[in-house]
Amino acid sequence: MKPLLFKVAKTNEETVRILQEDYPYFFDKLHYHAETQIMVIVAGEGTYFIGDAIGNFKAGDVFVLGANLPHFFRSSHPYYSTSSTLRSKNISILFALASMGERILELPEFYAVTKLLDRSKRGLKLEGKARQKIYAAAHRMAQKEGLPRIIYLLKQLHKLSMSEELIPLSHINFEPTELPADTKKINVVINYIMMNFNKDIVVSDAANVANLSINAFCRFFKLHTRKTFSMFLNEVRIGHACKMLIEEGFSVKEIAFQSGYYNISYFNRQFKQITGMTPSEYSKAHRARHNKMD
């Protein structure tokens, strides 16, 4: 995986960096950084790519992204409209505990937290009470400075390390890589896919965008995403279909068409292959979870 190396701006006075961002859409370039990041979605929705995982995010979601884990959060299409008044807001907590001392993570008291940070290298999505608590804690942490902020972060990490409501996202850990010369090219290709997944696009279209032959492009894309072009495209499309099913009010035929599928049987096969459920089963499961939460 060779995404963009993103260096987090920080001052010498800050061990824990907190960014409160409010933009029309999220930073949507595939990137990674040396710091662990707690990403709290305050407003906005769209598609995430974390490691080799693709899914949907919405306001209220919370993620823990380990050091050097490639990721991006791309807002939904309406957020990119020049006439849009929609906003994408998040609180990002960035930190590297090793900066507090090389041996701090070797202390027995940090054993559970060290395991949490290791798990976060695959990306973690918080559910249930863990999500609610960290969502609220992030807002409080943003009001703290200096040592009180560090102590408060350590308390939250300790709580998370005890939680069973952390869902791993990526199937594999990612190791840091050097900044590649073709970083811009892979982001151009991903942007093309995200803007056109609901159209009848094929691998040759993406290869043309990258200015590569089809064979060279297939190798290039697999190297950078750990997925084939068709796998990536289908996961983006099915992710969009899941979002439409949750919103309700659409027929399966409408959802398939608006997700880039013109053959219902093929759509149903891809949906079950990726989610493990049929569209109707997925919709029922979502309603059951929603009713349980109510």
Rank of each mutant, 00 (worst) to 15 (best):
S265E: 08
P3R: 06
F72I: 01
K29W: 10
E145M: 12
T47I: 15
E235H: 14
K159G: 08
I190H: 01
D205R: 07
A142V: 09
K222W: 06
F73H: 14
Y23M: 14
N198L: 06
L19F: 13
Y23P: 03
H33I: 13
G60I: 00
N191P: 02
T15S: 05
L147M: 13
A98H: 14
R287P: 05
H240K: 05
S84C: 09
R131W: 14
V188S: 02
Y79T: 02
A138Y: 00
G128H: 06
I93C: 07
I54A: 01
D200A: 10
E102P: 10
F221G: 04
Q273M: 12
A136Y: 01
K2R: 12
Q132V: 04
A138H: 04
K115N: 14
I186A: 02
D61R: 06
L117V: 04
M141H: 00
S283T: 01
F232Q: 05
E164D: 15
E164I: 12
G55P: 03
G260Y: 04
I18N: 05
D205V: 05
T177R: 08
T11Y: 01
E21M: 13
P78L: 09
A34G: 15
I50F: 10
Y79Q: 04
L169Y: 03
Y25E: 13
P279K: 06
Y111P: 07
P24A: 12
R119T: 11
P180F: 03
T183W: 10
R219T: 14
T11W: 02
I167Y: 11
L4C: 11
D200M: 09
I190S: 00
K2H: 10
G123K: 02
S81M: 13
L154K: 10
A137S: 08
Q37I: 07
Q132I: 00
F95Q: 07
L97Y: 02
I134L: 12
L157M: 09
R17G: 07
K253H: 13
G128M: 07
N198D: 03
V236H: 04
M100K: 11
Y25W: 15
C242H: 07
I104E: 07
L245F: 05
M162T: 11
G249N: 01
